[in-house]
Amino acid sequence: MQDDDGLSGRRTPRRRSVRRRFATLYAGLFLASGTAMLAVVAFFAGGSIQAVPGPGSGAAVPGVSAAAAARIASLEHQLTQAQSRQTQQLLLGSAVGLVVMGLLSLLLGWYAAGRVLRPVRAMTAATRRISADNLHERLAVDGPHDELRDLGETIDELLGRLERSFAAQRRFVADASHELRTPLATMRAAVDVTLGKPGPLPEQTRVLAGRVRTELDQVDGLLDGLLTLARAQHELPSPEAVPLGELAADALAARELSAARALDAAPVAPVRGNRTLLRRLVENLVDNAVVHNEPDGWVRVTVRETSGVPASVEHVEHVELVVENSGPTLTHEQVEELTRPFRRAGPDRTGGSGAGLGLAIVAAVTEAHHGRLDLHAREDGGLRVVVTLPAAVGTEVQA
């Protein structure tokens, strides 16, 4: 059974905090230096303690009576014991103070690490906000000219190069759309004029013209797919509330499939996005399910809310589009290749009029709408494609 991420048996590695490591390192260094200092103090304090004979055990001193000598020895012994107790109390107090300061150093290290890493957190948050649609934004790290500011300026320079690269790619897409469609239209018109001339044409010429027209249609479809793929990867024009159920019904009707039999769509919230791109997404999924199917196979399209709540609930978060079909059994490796441009899986996916861009366009459109695409090979053959898209914010679901 697969989890929500479409993966099984894969665990997300535990995130290790740099701030925690800095605080632990700071406290560890403090405790190590404090322990070393306490050991030096104990060494010198212990060296000053000497055993003094107890009362009555001292040697006789000339000119001093035995009672006076015993009294002196007793006082020396008491003084030694007092010094020993003071040294022990000093070492005990130092050890307790070291433990307390160690805990305090941990808190101070946590605070200091947070202050030092604050610019890094700000750069991380700003970098996450920047995408292909707002590459003009910059981190603009202020403060002293240190290593962190150098890092921010380096990232800003990288964003500048990316912005110029994306702009050049958009210009190329626009130029290619004009420069390539014009000669294609000219060649198609020439073929039509040739076929429309009065009088009989040689059969070989007619066959050749028909073949050229077919190839021109395939090239035109390939060009349209490439332009759609590039447009979906770089921009999301004119977002609006789009009902996926209606798009699915239209796509099934265009393929002359009965929506009543193949479509399972309860009233759900619309998704927010570009209607043209989302229509292309749905059409590509339905076309893929119909073309790469088995004879007398079936196609099932489902539109539903991921939360599974009734349609009377006012607000939903995501809408799911599920397209399934029968067909040959696919391996996991083949399924992983399907979203790559010009890739097909299986012997029945190597021919035909398709350009191998259908699911690649679906993946690009899904990513442009901040959604998720999951492909699963069905156990009894065929493919199950799940597209999860965010619902339009603040949209009420009509029962």
Rank of each mutant, 00 (worst) to 15 (best):
L226H: 03
R211T: 14
R261V: 14
L227D: 04
E215Y: 10
A254N: 10
D224G: 09
D250R: 15
L257N: 01
L223K: 06
A209S: 13
G199A: 02
P183A: 13
P237Q: 00
R188K: 12
L257T: 04
P183D: 00
Q204F: 06
L184H: 08
G245T: 08
T186Q: 09
T182D: 08
G245C: 00
A230R: 05
H234V: 04
E256N: 05
R231G: 15
D250I: 15
A185S: 14
G221R: 09
L222I: 00
A248E: 13
L227G: 12
V242Q: 05
V212S: 14
T186K: 08
P198T: 07
V207S: 15
T186I: 07
V207K: 10
L244F: 08
D220G: 15
L195N: 03
L184S: 12
R261N: 10
G245D: 15
E235M: 02
V191I: 12
L195V: 07
D220A: 15
A259Q: 09
P202M: 01
Q204H: 12
A249N: 07
Q218W: 14
R206M: 06
A253M: 12
R188M: 12
P198H: 08
R255Y: 00
T182K: 05
R261P: 04
D217Y: 03
A230F: 02
Q204I: 08
L216H: 11
L252A: 09
E235K: 00
L247R: 13
A190L: 11
A259F: 03
E246I: 14
T205A: 15
A254I: 07
M187T: 04
L208S: 14
A241C: 01
T194D: 04
S258V: 08
T186R: 09
D217M: 00
L236I: 00
L184Q: 09
A248T: 15
A190Y: 07
Q204E: 12
A230M: 07
A232V: 07
L226Y: 07
K197Q: 12
M187P: 05
V191A: 11
D224M: 03
P239R: 03
Q218S: 08
D220H: 10
S238L: 09
T205Q: 15
Q233I: 01
P237C: 06
L227M: 09
T194N: 06
A185N: 14
G225K: 04
